[in-house]
Design a protein around this nucleic acid. Structure first.
Length: 104
DNA sequence: GGTCTGACGGACA
DNA sequence: ATGTCCGCCAGAC
C-alpha cells in the first residue's frame, strides 16, 4: 500500500516548488503600465506566497501594480502615488478594480 | 521531520 | 465597516 495517495489532479495542476515562484514573477512582470492585478489573480492557490515573493525578491519588478482583492494598497501611500502617476483610476483611496484590473 | 511567518483571500460574526 | 479564523505555499530555522 502506498503511504500516501497522489495529489488530486485538478484542472489547474499548479506547479510546485521554485517553478511556482517563477510563474509568480512572470505574471507580475507582465502587468502593463496603468493596470493592476491582485494577489489572488497572480496565484489563486497561494496569494500569500505572492506577497512573500514580492517582499523578498531583489529583482526589478512592477511590484506597485499588485494590490489586494479589494483594491487597497498593501504598501500604502507610496504605492498609490506610483499608480496614480500611471493613470490608474482610484476611488475612495483604493484602486478602482472594475476598470484597472487586468483580465485573466 | 516540525513550526512559524509573510505586501492574502474568503467566509462569517 | 471591523475583526476572527482557517487555508494556501515556499523559505528559514
Amino acid at each position: 500500500m502506498p503511504r500516501r495517495l497522489p495529489d488530486t489532479p485538478d484542472v489547474d495542476t499548479p506547479t510546485r516548488g521554485p517553478a511556482r515562484v517563477e510563474r509568480i514573477v512572470a505574471r507580475v512582470r507582465s502587468i502593463p503600465e496603468g493596470f493592476v492585478r491582485t494577489y489572488g489573480d497572480i496565484d489563486p492557490g497561494a496569494p500569500r506566497l505572492v506577497g512573500h515573493v514580492l517582499a523578498t525578491t531583489d529583482l526589478d519588478l512592477p511590484w506597485h501594480r499588485v494590490v489586494r482583492a479589494d483594491g487597497s494598497a498593501p504598501v500604502g501611500r507610496r504605492q498609490l502615488d506610483l499608480l496614480r502617476r500611471e493613470g490608474v483610476p482610484m476611488r475612495a483611496g483604493r484602486v478602482d478594480l472594475s476598470v484597472a484590473r487586468l483580465p485573466g
